[in-house]
Design a protein around this nucleic acid. Structure first.
Lengths: 341, 341
DNA sequence: TTGTAGGCGTTATCAG
DNA sequence: CTGATAACGCCTACAA
């Protein structure tokens, strides 16, 4: 392993000078020395040892991407196609800016804190719901943190930025759309609902759209299920056999697609017998038959903004708004039918 | 930040003793000292500084997951749902064994080497095809490496393990199946084919099945396209309009699904007009209508085996076989029709 | 059973 | 413009 010392010896200067050149402190070194040092660096294949750097500077250029593992959600962050695309774009940007990405799932606050201190982590992406306890811990850390899709009571900490979505409005819009198409018995299908999560917000939107239309909220039409294929197919067939459901709002396209397939495999038609509306607008929506009407969110923009936020904070640039709520948009396709009443 | 020295002072012992306790060298320390040290560790919230550890031990407990970026493949590793699930499972296992996961996309060999030395990376997962130049570089590194889905000329290096799939057989089996169902004009649809990649192997299987049945290989029936929705839909409609194609073998389910949708949106039927067979057996196969016949591979097993390989090498356990080729299996569903001739 | 001392590669301070 | 030197936190001979 080539070290700064090796370079110094090869060129016949001191470590300090080499270090200065490496860090572009060119003012203090003669042009000739600089070029000789650079030549030696290339020739000997010098690569900085990040551990040593990190040790002395207590900063590591490591950015953590944290996925919070809960009892309910025993999947890694990347199981979700959404998040995986997100991570990909993060990695590239970070890499271009000289940062490194560590992926980590944590179960407890102390696990998270240990991880951060283990590596002098410089910044953090945090996705998904988490309890206040978790949030408190984050607030106490003084590294830049970008929260994605996390509903927290109070993001008023200068080290925390937040990127969210109009989840409430999305739920409201989807439900409203179904109501306007004459539906009254509208099922709500989602993964397990946790307080102050995105799904919770969407449920509130659903409820309010119903109540605005004077349709009573029926808890028995709320289906909290896991997102796997078997479960969603099964849920589809349950809905198909249900006596009065005419439409389903699912908070995830991936679930909506499964429900749709389940309905169809039970011999009923979408949208003729039952209408379906999803959420996310993933690519798959255009591959199903019928194409899935859904609520659109811009996932890649979310990723870009998140990285921008973090880079700005890392660069200590002033941040105008620490919170960005991305807009949703209804995308009409063919999975919802107008009920003639 | 609490250090070993802090602990030592708090307890009134030396750093060495603390270090010994931390590393479970219990033989050398009295039980009482051990418990007092452990108590102090808990109370003061000591967390080891990995940078310092790594510096002195030139090993970091960092495992890299490398995605090789080529001009053709400008996507991150995680864009592929396959790989993302894989990464998730890797992370958990590594984490349980006290390792950390760094994600990295690299374009060149030297970029890779720099990365490894930057962090004293202890082990590597490497997915996808790569040129011999790349492979040579890997062979020269003396850390454990697990290759996944990489066809390399020679894995006979003690630091390299390889996990592959019966790609050739998969291509052969799929094509043979179509032929047995009376098809002769069989399109081959895949992402861009690179030499010695999985797709290349599947193409060989396709060709051989054809030639065994005395069906001439027609290059004009090979469609190399990107995997995005627009492209695959478009390809579906091209195939639908094609004069003599009666069946399609696509080397990726995600593409097969798009093609199927494209065919259907062009007003033709699957499988009545055109049969489709995919590859991978992703969940989606059971959500389409018709359900997609495909070649199954066990993705999660791939991940598990890969991690096992790496852990064994890291533990310096003897490895019996440095190469595992996972079997494929035909899964019959409803997207292929028997042609009556 | 416990302590001392040197060094891992890098940076920063301060003196030449 | 350049060079010593100390420190970062930890580990490991070796000594006691």
């Amino acid at each position: 392993m080539t070290t700064i010392k090796d370079i110094a010896q090869a060129v016949g200067v001191s470590c300090t000078t080499v270090s200065n050149v490496i860090h572009g402190r060119s003012g203090r070194v003669s042009a000739e020395t600089i070029s000789r040092i650079n030549e030696a660096i290339d020739r000997l294949g010098y690569v900085p040892n990040m551990s040593a750097r990190s040790l002395v500077s207590s900063s590591s250029r490591v950015i953590g991407v944290i996925s919070h593992l809960t009892p309910h959600n025993n999947e890694s962050i990347v199981a979700d196609p959404f998040h995986s695309a997100f991570i990909g774009s993060i990695e590239r940007t970070l890499s271009n800016n000289g940062y490194y990405l560590m992926l980590r799932t944590v179960k407890t606050t102390s696990e998270l804190l240990s991880f951060l201190r283990n590596w002098n982590v410089d910044g953090l992406f945090f996705t998904g719901v988490f309890q206040d306890e978790f949030f408190q811990a984050l607030a106490d850390i003084d590294i830049p943190i970008v929260l994605i899709d996390s509903y927290v009571t109070n993001t008023n900490h200068s080290n925390i930025c937040n990127i969210g979505l109009e989840d409430y409005k999305g739920g409201y819009t989807a439900t409203r759309y179904l109501i306007e198409h004459g539906h009254k018995n509208i099922a709500f299908a989602s993964p397990p609902i946790r307080d102050h999560g995105v799904v919770y917000e969407r449920l509130q939107g659903y409820k309010n759209a119903l109540s605005e239309a004077s349709i009573p909220f029926r808890p028995d039409l709320v289906f909290e299920r896991e997102l796997d294929v078997d479960t969603t197919l099964e849920l589809g067939s349950v809905i198909a056999k249900h006596k009065d459901i005419t439409a389903v709002f699912s908070t995830a396209d991936i679930m909506a697609v499964g429900i749709m397939a389940g309905i169809q495999q039970s011999g009923k038609s979408v949208p003729n017998d039952i209408s379906v509306i999803g959420f996310d607008n993933i690519n798959l929506c255009r591959l199903t038959s019928p194409n899935l009407t859904t609520i659109h969110q811009d996932a890649s923009l979310k990723g870009t903004l998140a990285v921008d936020f973090l880079m700005d904070m890392l660069d200590k640039k002033p941040i105008k708004d620490r919170e960005i709520i991305l807009p949703i948009k209804l995308v009409e396709r063919d999975s919802v039918k107008k009920l003639i009443s």
